[in-house]
Design a protein around this nucleic acid. Structure first.
Lengths: 337, 337
DNA sequence: CTGAAAGCGCTAACAG
DNA sequence: CTGTTAGCGCTTTCAG
């Protein structure tokens, strides 16, 4: 493995010139550039990233943290982020933090020490429930490097938020459901993250705007997203005194899949007896039987926007702190509109 | 942001001592360690990773390449790898390469420049079909740093392979199917990667060992893993002259899910008319209706083994070049055994 | 346009 | 046990 001195000698120039060629500086004659480049090629020279990092205090690397890559939504997001970042010549270092506050804060602190150029937090879990205490570590991080939240929101300088319009998406879905005559709409969720809160708000507002009461029993929380467990929770619910429902709006496809399993277990039909709407438009949606109507939360768009914003910021431009991307409902067979 | 000189001065020692404390060298008195540590804490000092990398020529980072993190199997693997590696204090840099040969080779070359300590290639796509030309870039990489293949196999020094016993898994499944009287077993695959080849071999051997012929029409290749497209391929097949089948063994749950959709579309029943067995035991398996019997390919175990091997190797121990992990069939409702 | 030289912050002999 | 010092390979003034 040769270094810059070798190349300089081989090319008959100084290391400064080699460095300039590597960085494509305009103040080197095309002729010397040619010469140096050919030598670099011949000896298969690649600059040492550490030394480079030391000098520039940057390794063209951005940190990505998500609670769990094995979650389909996040995996998808990371896939898009990685791709977009690479287009700009940036690498990704990945950290899966888990969901606990302490673990998340810890992950952020650890990854900051890697001298990354920017930090991306995937998933609205990082915004907590919007409370100040829950986001302190994010604000600290933003003091050192720009922080980008995918689908989270923290209002503070240095923090940039790219969000799907989850409020509107749910508002619209519930409104649609109401219009087709559904009256008992179950809201099924498994998180109280920022975006979950937004979805709840959309649900409630749609009801209110149609002069319908918000029934607490119709907002049901399940502790995870395992399909069969969701089904069982619902089954259990139906054995207690529960008002019953003729539609379910879920904050995630897996929950909706659980609802479909429930409907089947009860010998009911969808959409006739109960409509179901999922969220994220994942593989699960089409795997369901019947196939699930689901809102597409535009993960790819969010990620691409985030990277674009980041690049603008890194190049010294001032960028907006918040960007909202509309969702899109993909109608399949579990709804009758 | 302070550096080692500041800390040295503040603590009244030399930078060498600070460095030793940072690296927890045993040849520093507890007393000075205490002192230095307290100063580091007080001023919130963290060593510069670049300078450190320059000196040690390592940043405790391993490169992970997979064709596509948005694939459930790979996302899962990466989740486990990341977790295990972090336990040993290693970071991950991630690269999603896509499936094309050139892109894969390119990814490997790019990531090598990052001076990673080891490289992990996730998915048997990296072994190609076992041909020499298809793995040249892997062997090149292994010349510089140890390479670990998750579910791939390349026999060459410096390359370590951790594999699920896919051959045996399929062999056993097919044998089970045969024992319950199935005779026309469709083998559904969408790749000719190393592990896919192993699975085919398991399928063929099981037939042969039961004195049954291998019918080429029963090995059907589909170009992707989109559930509905798989269904359509099968539907199309049934419209042509095709021997028909009473069981399907798929190399991936999504393909099996497609088969289930097909069965439903034809108005048939599973398992009565057609048994279905999937692979990887993913979320999709339980989302299917009825729930899918699936081979658990032990992704977590594979990854943990890989990291363990890697650490042993990095610590100078000699480790075996190949490790095979048995699979495990998870029986659900699409089979009658 | 090109070169010389001073760091960047840390590690690792080498001396005490 | 502790300090001195010479790099690690590159970037970047500052002169020419």
């Amino acid at each position: 493995m040769r270094n810059i001195y070798d190349i300089a000698e081989l090319a008959g120039v100084s290391i400064a010139t080699v460095s300039r060629v590597v960085n494509d500086s305009p103040k080197v004659s095309e002729k010397t550039k040619e010469k140096v480049r050919s030598v670099m090629k011949e000896y298969n020279y690649t600059p040492n990233v550490f030394a480079r990092g030391l000098g520039l205090n940057s390794m063209k690397t951005v940190g990505i943290i998500c609670p769990d890559v094995s979650d389909a939504y996040m995996a998808n997001a990371i896939s898009h982020l990685e791709k977009s970042l690479r287009c700009y010549g940036y690498n990704c270092i990945l950290y899966c933090s888990g969901y606990a506050y302490e673990d998340k804060a810890n992950a952020v602190n650890l990854i900051l020490q890697k001298r990354i150029d920017a930090l991306i937090l995937v998933g609205s879990n990082y915004a907590g429930d919007g409370g100040d205490a829950a986001t302190e570590y994010i604000r600290n991080a933003a003091n050192e490097i720009p922080v980008f939240l995918i689908n989270g929101y923290v209002r503070d300088p240095g923090i940039y938020c790219i969000l799907a319009d989850n409020y509107q998406a749910i508002y619209d879905v519930v409104t649609d459901l109401l219009e087709t005559g559904r009256r008992q709409i179950l809201f099924l969720y498994n998180s109280t993250s920022y975006s979950a809160l937004e979805k709840i708000r959309g649900y409630e507002d749609a009801l209110k705007d149609n002069s319908l009461p918000v029934q607490e029993e119709l907002k049901v929380y399940v502790p995870n997203h395992r399909i069969l467990e969701v089904r069982d929770s619902l089954l259990q619910l139906s054995e207690q005194e529960h008002p019953g429902f003729d539609a379910v709006v879920a904050t995630e496809d897996a929950l909706a899949a659980g609802a479909i399993k429930y409907i089947r277990a009860k010998g009911l039909r969808t959409p006739e007896d109960i409509c179901v709407v999922g969220y994220n438009n994942s593989e699960l949606a089409v795997c369901c039987e019947p196939e699930l109507t689901s809102v597409d939360s535009q993960g790819r768009v969010l990620c691409e926007e985030a990277v674009e914003l980041m690049m603008a910021h890194l190049h010294g431009q001032t960028v907006r702190h918040k960007k909202i991307v509309p969702c899109h409902l993909v109608k399949r067979k579990t709804t009758d509109f």
